[in-house]
């Protein structure tokens, strides 16, 4: 306690007030944390599922791509890929959970028909088309993973922040306030005792003076 606080009753009342507010805050933050953790685990489950889906989609896609590459040659595949390039627009909505802003990524359909990709159905094999479709699945899976993981990260950060706050309150602020309260009240008590003592002495002196006189 570097700063010197004046042990006044005013200060004591102030500290007591602060302490009550801090304890209320801790309580609130803990409840918020619990809610966030519950949310977190719910999303973790979604996220794990999305991850699994992504891994499965990737496995299928890359195996088929390797096969297609082996059977049809790289050029045929790359040629089939050229006209297929496009931008994918994604809607991101921000939701408020316990005062935390959490982005919601809307999963948009990404699968297209072969012709929409600009592939020539006469000369492009089903394997190539399927391979392209598989990678669109992968994109969809990535979006799903992104949607859950962004949420997850946000919530995770929020939980961390809340925990840090709780900790700060519990470990630092509240003990300090308690210490200060204790200090002030002890000083005040001391002072009171001194006053009593002093008064008693004065009273004694006065009585002695009165007795002498």
């Amino acid at each position: 306690m570097a700063e010197v606080i004046s042990p006044t009753r005013m200060n004591l009342l102030q500290r007591r007030n602060q302490l009550r507010v801090a304890q209320q805050g801790v309580d609130l933050l803990k409840r918020k944390r619990d809610a966030l953790v519950a949310d977190f685990f719910k999303i973790v489950r979604q996220s794990l599922a999305a991850r699994d889906q992504l891994a499965a989609a990737c496995r299928d896609a890359y195996v088929l791509l390797a096969v297609a590459k082996a059977v049809e040659g790289r050029e045929a595949l790359e040629a089939a890929a050229i006209p297929a390039r496009r931008d994918l627009l994604i809607d991101i909505e921000v939701r408020n959970v316990w005062g935390t802003k959490i982005p919601e990524v809307a999963v948009v359909p990404v699968r297209r028909q072969a012709l929409e990709r600009g592939q020539n159905p006469v000369a492009t094999s089903a394997r190539t088309i399927e391979s392209a479709a598989n990678f669109e699945e992968v994109v969809a899976a990535i979006l799903a993973v992104a949607a859950t993981e962004i949420k997850l990260r946000k919530i995770g950060e929020e939980i961390k922040k809340t925990t840090r706050r709780v900790n700060a309150l519990e470990q630092v602020v509240i003990p300090r306030l308690r210490g200060e309260t204790r200090y002030i009240s002890s000083v005040l008590e001391q002072r009171a005792r001194e006053d009593v003592f002093r008064l008693k002495r004065i009273k004694k002196k006065l009585e002695a003076k009165a007795a002498d006189a």
Binding site: G73, E75, A76, E78, A79, I82
Partner: peptide, 20 residues
């Protein structure tokens, strides 16, 4: 011919196109 036409379209180098 198909491979070369595609390669041309994709702007590949001659060497890359020849691989197909």
């Amino acid at each position: 011919l198909r491979a070369i036409v595609r390669g041309r379209h994709a702007g590949r180098s001659a060497g890359e196109t020849l691989e197909a």
